Simulated scan of single mutants.
Amino acid sequence: MVEYIVFFGLVISGFVFLGLDIRRIKGIQVQQNIPPYFEELNKCESPIEKRVLKALWMRDHKATAQYPMSPYRLDLALPDYRIAIECDGKTYHSSPKQKAHDRKRDKYLRSKGWITLRFSGKDINGNMSKVINRIESEIQKKHFIT
């Protein structure tokens, strides 16, 4: 008797999971109320972006991940202060072509009134307090300007 209960329980749970998977494949979204922090955390593209985002939110700075700034997209942004935070991986941002692209992007952002703060993965992983202090010093400068 117990074997039948276990068997039919497994069959029913298999159909439930099959139905959920079919909904996922078809793109049917189940409405979820995800807190803003987790929404931003899910948008981060690298572990170093997540570390900076977590540290900023812990200090009550509501940073936005993957902020659109046409024609670019910022790793992290503090839109109220017009601060762009770029978390540069070791290999990707070290090529001459990428450095030229970064300079062009920074110039564009400056023309829109933004400041760009760039931090390497080494800085983020090795000295987060220094990274946060640098960001907060820019926030303080922006407070005095406005």
Rank of each mutant, 00 (worst) to 15 (best):
E3S: 04
V6C: 01
F8D: 04
G9D: 04
G9Y: 02
G9M: 03
S13F: 14
V16Y: 15
F17P: 00
L18I: 11
L18P: 03
D21E: 10
I22Y: 10
I22T: 09
K26R: 15
I28H: 05
Q29G: 02
Q31E: 15
Q31H: 14
I34K: 04
I34Q: 05
Y37V: 13
E39N: 04
K43R: 14
E45W: 08
E45T: 10
S46H: 04
I48E: 12
E49M: 13
E49D: 14
K50R: 08
R51K: 15
R51S: 10
A55G: 05
A55I: 04
L56G: 06
R59G: 05
D60Y: 11
A63L: 13
T64F: 13
A65Y: 03
Q66G: 13
Y67H: 10
P68Y: 13
P68H: 13
S70V: 11
P71W: 15
Y72L: 09
R73W: 12
L76I: 12
A77H: 10
L78F: 01
P79R: 13
D80R: 08
D80G: 08
Y81R: 12
G89L: 07
K90S: 08
Y92V: 03
S94C: 11
K97N: 08
K99D: 00
D102L: 09
D102R: 06
D106F: 09
D106V: 08
L109W: 07
R110N: 15
S111L: 12
K112P: 03
I115E: 10
T116K: 04
L117I: 03
L117R: 00
R118F: 04
F119T: 03
K122D: 01
D123F: 04
D123L: 07
I124R: 05
N125H: 07
N127I: 02
K130F: 05
V131F: 05
N133P: 01
I139D: 09
K142C: 12
H143T: 12
